[in-house]
Simulated assay, not measured.
Amino acid sequence: MSILISDEILRSTQMTEFELRQEIAVMLFQQERFTLGQASRFAEMSQLQFQRLLASRRISLHYDVAELREDVESLKESGWR
């Protein structure tokens, strides 16, 4: 699925597409709808970069064993070894 965000929306928010992706990822992470891995991929950032973004906003990680397993599976599916 793809989401198309018009240039008009970006102009009205005064954000770049990258910034808007980050905001959506942070919001969904805070709502526990995204794992850390999902949020960082959506934001097109490494997990470390995304963690730094969260830390800069004083947002704590909610990362449990189930999320770790999910991230490991995602890495395996992407061919990472």
Rank of each mutant, 00 (worst) to 15 (best):
S6E: 14
R41E: 11
L4S: 13
F42Q: 02
L4I: 15
E17M: 11
I24Y: 08
Q51G: 08
R21L: 13
D71K: 01
L61A: 06
E8N: 13
I59Q: 06
R33F: 05
A25R: 03
W80I: 10
A25L: 04
I24H: 05
E23V: 08
Y63E: 07
S46K: 02
E73R: 05
T16D: 08
L54H: 09
L68S: 10
D71V: 05
L54R: 12
R41C: 00
L54W: 09
E32C: 08
E70T: 11
F34H: 04
Q51H: 05
L48F: 11
T13Y: 13
R41G: 00
L68I: 15
S2D: 15
A66R: 13
S74R: 07
L10Q: 04
T35G: 06
S2R: 13
E77T: 04
A43Y: 01
I24E: 07
S56D: 15
M27S: 10
V26H: 08
L36M: 01
L36P: 01
Q22V: 09
Q14G: 12
Q38M: 13
Q51M: 14
L10C: 09
A55I: 12
R21T: 08
S6C: 08
T16S: 14
Y63I: 06
E32I: 06
S56V: 07
V65C: 09
H62Q: 14
E67Q: 14
Q30T: 05
S74W: 05
H62D: 15
T16H: 05
E23A: 11
Q22G: 09
S40Q: 04
E17A: 11
M27Y: 13
